[in-house]
Simulated assay, not measured.
Amino acid sequence: MIESTDRTVAGSLGELAVREWKPAEPAWIALIAHGYGEHSGRYEWVAERLAGARALVCAPDHIGHGRSPGDRVHFEDAEVLVSDLDVVRRELAAEHPDLPIVLIGHSMGGMLAARYAQHHPGKLSALVLSGPVLGTWHVLDLLEHDEIPDTPIDPATLSRDPQVGADYLADPLVWHGPFRRATLRAVDECLLAINEGPSLELPTLWIHGEDDELVPEADTRTGIDRVRGGDFHEHIYPGARHELFNETNRTEVVADVLNFVGRALNS
């Protein structure tokens, strides 16, 4: 088992808390962008598997999330979070200039990862989008209310493994409150920008759960169809819910990701 270490990185709005898993002889870098309301510590299992495949894994907590500063789950411009990912990427590239970098984004982090790839097409060797918020997202319908209803994420939508939902509810670093209006507006603006932006012209893997109720596959596909490039691959998992890296078939999912990365880095 490879234990994580902690570091901080100077983000746009404050010091970002970052977890890192480093094997003895890394061959590539996996930069993980986590989802809305959660934090990098929930990626321990997948990070250990990636590190076992010689990845130096780096996972920052977005501003307002986890151990990073800021009002909880509040941001007014998603581009700030995208810029923070670039700060982390630049530090990693300076420390390990010979290692290719793969950006792995989950859910809202998938949205940020797609936007990052649009902004910095030459900085990444590959992109992995896990249950990404792209295209349209039904949660944005909450903006129609004068007051945002207190409708936190249902833990049952995360995985077929009930322990995942139980751990999520018990995690003090996870946000369990209502969505923030400013954050939803920022997500909406980011989705529109992605839809109008360039295609993803780098090796890209999209993975999604067929039974994902939190971020339905059909909604994401409307965005994917706008930005897919020439080296695009997808895998939709029957019966799987939102958090594929915490699903009952997570070993299969990670194997598929590693196979894709291996092909992308050796092409």
Results as ranks from 00 to 15, higher is better:
Pro238Val: 13
Asp212Val: 11
Val139Thr: 14
Asp71Tyr: 03
Arg160Gly: 14
Met1Leu: 13
Trp137Ala: 13
Glu201Lys: 09
Gly229Arg: 06
Asp61Gly: 03
Asp141Val: 05
Asp154Asn: 15
Ser12Pro: 02
Asp161Ala: 12
Thr248Asp: 12
Arg115Phe: 08
Leu143Arg: 09
Met111Trp: 04
Arg89Phe: 10
Arg54Trp: 07
Asp77Asn: 15
Cys190Pro: 02
Gly229Glu: 06
Gly14Ile: 11
Leu134Ile: 09
His233Ala: 14
Phe260Lys: 04
Gly209Glu: 02
Glu76Cys: 10
Leu99Ser: 00
Leu56Cys: 07
Glu213Ile: 00
Ser40Pro: 09
Thr222Met: 12
Ala114Phe: 07
Val57Pro: 07
Trp21Ser: 10
Arg90Val: 14
Pro216Thr: 01
Leu192Asn: 09
Glu38Gly: 02
Met108Val: 05
Gly105Ser: 08
Val88Asn: 01
Ser159Gln: 10
Phe232Glu: 04
Ala33Asp: 10
Trp206Phe: 15
Arg181Pro: 11
Val187Glu: 05
His235Ser: 10
Val215Asp: 00
Val82Asn: 02
Gly177Arg: 04
Pro172Tyr: 06
Ile2Ser: 06
Arg181Asp: 07
Pro203Leu: 03
Asp150Leu: 00
Gly229Leu: 07
Pro121Tyr: 13
Leu169Phe: 02
Ala170Gln: 09
Glu196Phe: 03
His120Asp: 11
Pro121Val: 12
